[in-house]
Amino acid sequence: MRLGLQVPNFTWPNGQNELGTTFGQIAERADAVGLYSFWVMDHFFQIGFVGPAENEMLEGWSALAFAAGRTKRIKLGTMVTGVTYRYPGILVKTATTLDVLSQGRAYLGIGAAWNEEEHLGLGVPFPPLKERFERLEETLQIAHQMWAGDQRPFEGKHNQLTRPLNSPQSVQKPHPPILIGGTGEKKTLRMIAQYGDACNFFARMGDEALKHKLNVLREHCANLNRPYEQIEKTTLDQMVLTKDGRDGTLSPQAAIDQFGKLAELGIDHAIFSLGNVHEPETFEILANDIVPVVDKIQVAGR
């Protein structure tokens, strides 16, 4: 089973002046302890689930480029880019640049976008949900076309590209894996089956809800003649790790048990954020007590 770290919060005790240093150290430690992936949100304001909008928020793709320069092997992705934030051709170019400069370590995480506050605040158009899903599908089509090296004009309802040139091409072949965020059963899960390489669900949905979503995804794959096994199943969670599980935190064994249950459901890749991610001890726990064990957990159906 694979483990990934998401960093959604950049408000740390040592303050904004040390933000770059702390973020770089977190990326380096995640790489050193053997985590498979490293993720940041693609938001411009902090989201209410994490903190007030005024809290520090780094732009996602430049943060990942910075992390790429501080790491050697860990995969890098956005969890997830809102389709409204960038023109599709520019987004594919951005993801390709990260893949090239990191020597093949990029994910393209993408979704239909939802945070109206930051759109309005920064002057980004926020179309209705139906249009956002239309734009998401066109962006996925454009990504596949550009990564295939097909320079024919793209004529969509919302996007027109006269020459979708992408040079240099991505290091990963046929392209960086596309993770599509969201759990909608009619549109999102169908798009994952048709265009995606990975899905992402909230781990705290519970076993029965996760099983149901995976079954719906399986049905979409069958309808599209897409092998279900080709889709990487990922979850997102949050936790605080301590050696002894004090004060409601998770002990190493409790975390391992959680990851094991996800693997039994068929989850390949458990991604989590850590409330104490800025503390070096957290990575010592991951390195010594968790990652070596979880690496050996077999995923059901694999």
Rank of each mutant, 00 (worst) to 15 (best):
I290L: 10
K186S: 12
L274F: 13
W114M: 08
A254M: 15
E56T: 09
L35N: 02
Q160L: 12
H212C: 07
R105Y: 00
I290W: 04
W61V: 01
E155K: 13
H144F: 05
D197K: 05
M191L: 15
H269I: 08
Q238H: 14
Q160A: 08
G104D: 03
C221R: 01
H158A: 08
I142F: 09
L19H: 06
Q46P: 06
V124G: 00
S170V: 01
H175Y: 05
T21N: 13
T11H: 14
L265W: 10
Q145D: 05
E56L: 05
A255M: 14
G184I: 12
V291L: 09
L19Q: 08
F201V: 07
F23W: 10
C199V: 09
F10V: 07
G260N: 14
D295R: 13
S170R: 00
L210E: 08
E138M: 06
V83I: 13
Y107W: 11
D31H: 04
T234Q: 05
Q298E: 11
V294I: 15
T11F: 07
A143Q: 01
L129K: 08
Q258A: 12
M205G: 08
G89L: 10
Q141W: 02
D150W: 10
S251Q: 11
K211W: 07
G69C: 07
F49M: 10
A113H: 06
T97A: 04
E284H: 12
E116L: 12
L3D: 01
G109V: 03
Q194D: 15
V291T: 11
Y195D: 08
A287R: 14
R226Y: 01
Y107C: 00
G248M: 12
F272N: 02
T96W: 00
L274A: 10
G184V: 14
S170P: 14
Q46F: 07
F154R: 02
L210I: 15
H144D: 11
L189E: 03
E134W: 01
V83L: 06
V100I: 13
R190C: 07
K211F: 05
E54Q: 14
M57Y: 04
V124H: 08
R204S: 13
G48Q: 15
E155A: 12
E18H: 11
R73N: 10
I74S: 00
P8S: 07
K93I: 05
E118C: 09
R2C: 04
T78C: 04
E219C: 03
P252F: 14
H269M: 07
P280K: 07
K261A: 13
V50C: 09
L179C: 08
G245W: 11
E118T: 13
R73Q: 09
L140I: 07
N159P: 06
L19N: 04
Q172W: 00
G123P: 11
L241P: 02
